[in-house]
Design a protein around this nucleic acid. Structure first.
Length: 819
RNA sequence: GCCGAAGUGGCGGAACAGGCAGACGCGCACGACUCAAAAUCGUGUUCCGUAAGGAGUGUGGGUUCGAUUCCCACCUUCGGCACCA
């Protein structure tokens, strides 16, 4: 019955032809349209590393399919694309291949834009933004200026993380893992004392912990919440014997009576004045040794405790007790105040320290229902849950009840107050590299640090630089670039030679897409008012603690400066998983397990690649690449092609039942696919389409082709296919004689009556085991169902003559007979 | 150590209110078409058992008429954090 006259499915011919037509007709140009609801669909922009990776396709094609679905549902959809074009790999490639980073980057952008276009995605290329373009980074610098003028950017000398391979400092978020390695190159970082620029992200720590109205994965919110690391407690001020205050942070002010010593970080500013002459040499030696250690050595948990007595003492404000002050490297200068009160009875670390240096241990919280603890003999610290003991007037009070009273008391005697601390650090944005947006600051001998006036931006990155890695910013080596005049006093000034972290560029790219050539501000306010916020954001979860924190901070900071509006920049977030190599390892050139999308497109066509990437794994999970599975999706698309085009002359001999079944399956599939698009479950969209196609084959064999129901099924099928396989759907739509374009059609409506089940399969169980199945009317009564079940031979057989104790009917599903 | 995610056939996965486990596809086997192969189409494919039947969703318990789904304990893998006071 196969009609041999239909043309073969030839994606290599179809796909470029439609891409050209879409481009020529401006099909994907999104413009403000107040009559339609807007939908801003954003997918994370790629770094122009050279070639589009299968991972990019995996991230972007389902995002594109969903954007298309939203468009068909009546939304005015914006789905833009651009390039995160500044960054280290360009410089590394420059060094390796002796090619200018700019040439390397823009060449890659050209190639990747071509590859992106082969996906057939609905990107509005007019809105492309490239972060290395002066018309883009002019505004990156402008944002820096606004932050600087409002106290959100500051310069500070401090010990910072330095990647010896990338020759630059890194933000705390960009140092990963137990060995504290560089997020980019994997080299363990070292500490350096440098004067660097920071953004005051900590100012927003508390707000960043709130996710108002955000539909974000729980996973991401948890990662961010843990990263920000809020601790609620109190600052308590002890005094040295000379009367100098030593402030500590504690989450357990109720253990104050158990503080038997204090520990300062070796770098703490009070160490010098506390140290007695007899201890001076030893303390100095310990400080030196601590300074030489790496963070990894210093912060490894299982390390034997080390420390040194300063010879000095402090007075506990609640009981006037005189306690020794030590220094130790387990206390970090970068958290809290760099000093702690040690309560060895109830803190594991303090306990280990006390035992090692033979310091007193005093129990102040007695766990309930246990024999009294003895500080001298206890083998380990005990959790501080229970009743306060050895705590003066508060002895006998449950610890959790005393908490607020103690803070009130500390406030009354002027020795402390409630406080909150965060693990989050301010964002270090200085990079000692060439290929980035220059920090728009000048240093004048008279005026100090002066921002380049907004109307003189951008501070252009010079092309003629030596990009040799020296550990200094390459811009420092430029013969003339750094020398300029101060805009305030006209005297000589030098430019800042560091560039900005590229995460600064990517913190606001979603705003630049709105109007990439706008020159009166970072974005056209009319476009902002219409499109923002981003409705759906898709991308990898690896950015949970980097980009996704930075961009939220950026938005909130800008909101407070009157630049942006609303609490959050991106309302809904969905993360795709990772496509691994066939060997289940991360794809990398060195492992030789990289899958090239170009070759797959050449062999199967973009539509098959798109469909396979949606089908082959749960999108949010990812999976190792399976090279043979794609044959199945390619086969399916060829069958769809044949099914749609072969039907025209087929007979109309189907019975009523066939037609009813066809329509039921069709509308059930439509319902299921609609729901799955809403919930980002792409793999079941494809399998439902495959199932429906099988059902339609059956109906056609039964003579359904040529009926109105068949026509309806084909029409709906092609529409449902459009987001997934946009080229094929467009071609089929045209061949069916329908007007251009399938992508501007509305998403079909479910006919609930058609989808309704008239008959159901009633499952019959005996003691929870399936023994029989009956086809019964869907509206069967409970009594009817139970009677039918008991009448079943199979059920009777397994009842073995016993009387049912209970018969359970689950409407529309099953009957369970219990004996 | 703490936080989070995940464990289902040979493989990817489905089961969306606690109700038919294994949809859909890959792979494999057999068959049709073919001189032959590819492509295509058809049939079968969780395991044990000739069968009747039994077992079965990481492991062990629990709740329930009924558990992949809920609860408890544990194991494994992956991700994040880690001397954060």
């Amino acid at each position: 019955m196969a009609n041999t006259s239909i043309p073969q499915y030839d994606p290599a011919e179809i796909e470029p032809r439609w891409q050209q037509k879409w481009h020529d007709s401006g099909l994907y140009e999104s413009n403000i349209d107040e009559r339609r609801p807007k939908h801003y669909a954003l997918t994370m922009l790629p770094y122009p590393s050279g070639d589009l990776h299968i991972g990019h396709w995996y991230a972007m094609t389902p995002s594109d399919a969903r954007a298309r679905f939203m468009r068909m549902r009546g939304y005015n959809v914006l789905f833009p694309m651009g390039f995160d074009a500044f960054g280290l790999p360009a410089e590394n490639a420059a060094i390796k291949n002796n090619i200018h980073p700019k040439i390397w980057t823009y060449r890659n952008i050209d190639n990747m834009r071509r590859q992106l276009k082969s996906m057939g995605a609905m990107f509005d290329w007019r809105r492309q933004a490239v972060s290395a373009d002066p018309e883009y980074y002019r505004w990156t610098q402008w944002f820096f200026n606004q932050f600087y003028k409002n106290g959100l950017a500051y310069r500070k000398m401090s010990p910072v993380d330095w990647c010896p391979n990338c020759n630059t400092t890194l933000a705390r978020e960009q140092v990963w893992g137990e060995d504290r390695h560089c997020e980019r190159c994997g080299t363990p970082v070292i500490k350096k004392d440098l004067e660097q620029w920071f953004f005051r992200t900590t100012k927003y720590a508390d707000e960043l912990l709130q996710y108002p109205g955000l539909d974000w994965p729980e996973r991401v919110r948890t990662l961010q919440t843990n990263w920000i690391g809020k601790s609620v407690g109190a600052y308590v001020t002890f005094k040295t014997e000379h009367g100098d205050p030593i402030q500590v942070f504690t989450t357990r002010p109720d253990t104050l009576w158990g503080a038997t010593f204090m520990v300062l970080a070796p770098e703490h500013p009070l160490v010098d004045s506390l140290t007695t002459p007899e201890q001076r040499d030893a303390v100095h030696a310990y400080q030196q040794q601590a300074a030489r250690q790496t963070d990894v050595q210093r912060e490894s948990t299982d390390k034997e405790k080390t420390g040194m007595f300063t010879g000095g003492y402090a007075i506990n404000p609640v009981n006037g007790e005189r306690i020794p002050v030590w220094i130790a490297d387990y206390v970090l200068m970068t958290y809290g105040t760099g000093a702690i009160m040690a309560v060895p009875a109830h803190d594991e670390r303090d306990f280990a320290f006390a035992r090692k240096f033979d310091l007193p241990v005093r129990v102040v919280i007695q766990p309930e229902g246990q024999p009294p603890m003895d500080g001298d003999s206890m083998p380990e610290a005990v959790p501080a849950h229970g009743v306060m003991v050895n705590s003066g007037a508060l002895s006998g009070t449950p610890a959790d009840k005393a908490y607020d009273a103690i803070i009130a008391y500390l406030e009354k005697i002027g020795a402390g107050h409630a406080a909150v601390n965060y693990r989050l650090r301010d964002w270090l944005i200085s990079r000692q590299r060439y290929w980035g947006a220059p920090i728009p600051i000048l240093y004048c001998q008279n005026c100090g640090a002066v921002p380049v006036p907004d109307d003189q931006l951008p501070v252009l990155l010079p092309d003629d630089v030596e990009w040799k890695p020296t550990g200094e910013s390459p811009l420092k080596l430029h013969p003339t670039w750094r020398h300029t005049t101060c805009p305030q006093c006209g005297g000589p000034a030098e430019r800042e030679t560091d560039t900005m972290d590229t995460f600064m560029c990517s913190s606001w790219y979603h705003l630049r897409y709105l109007s990439p050539h706008y020159d009166k501000g970072p974005f056209d306010p009319r476009e902002y008012d219409y499109w923002m916020p981003v409705d759906t954001y898709t991308g990898g979860i690896e950015h949970a603690n980097m980009h996704l924190i930075y961009t939220r901070f950026f938005h909130k900071a800008c909101r407070d400066l009157g630049i942006t509006e609303g609490p959050e920049p991106m309302i809904q977030l969905r993360n795709q998983g990772m496509v691994l190599g066939e060997d289940s390892e991360k794809m990398s050139k060195s492992r030789g397990n990289v899958v090239s999308p170009d070759k797959l497109v050449e062999r199967y066509g973009a539509d098959s690649v798109r469909a396979y990437l949606m089908f082959f794994a749960r999108w949010d999970m990812g999976a190792p690449w399976n090279p043979t599975g794609i044959d199945g999706t390619a086969r399916w698309l060829r069958r769809v092609w044949a099914m749609v085009l072969e039907n025209a002359s087929s007979p109309n001999t189907a019975g009523e039942e066939t037609i009813r079944t066809l329509r039921r399956k069709l509308h059930q599939a439509l319902k299921s696919i609609t729901r799955d698009f809403e919930t980002f479950e792409f793999n079941t969209i494809i399998s439902t389409l495959m199932e429906l196609q099988n059902e339609m084959f059956k109906a056609r064999s039964a003579g359904a082709a040529g009926t109105p129901a068949w026509k309806e099924a084909v029409d709906i099928y092609v529409r449902m296919l459009a987001p997934v396989a946009p080229h094929m759907a467009e071609e089929l739509w045209a061949r069916l004689g329908r007007p251009y374009s399938v992508h501007t059609q509305s998403w079909p409506a479910v006919d609930e009556a058609a989808a309704a089940q008239e008959e159901i399969t009633l499952v019959l169980q005996v003691n929870g085991k399936v023994r029989d199945r009956l086809t019964v009317p869907a509206d069967i009564s409970a009594d009817g169902a139970k009677a039918a079940a008991l009448a079943s031979d199979a059920v009777q057989k397994f009842l073995e003559g016993k009387t049912p104790r209970q018969v359970i009917y689950v409407p529309g599903k099953l009957v369970n007979v219990v004996v």
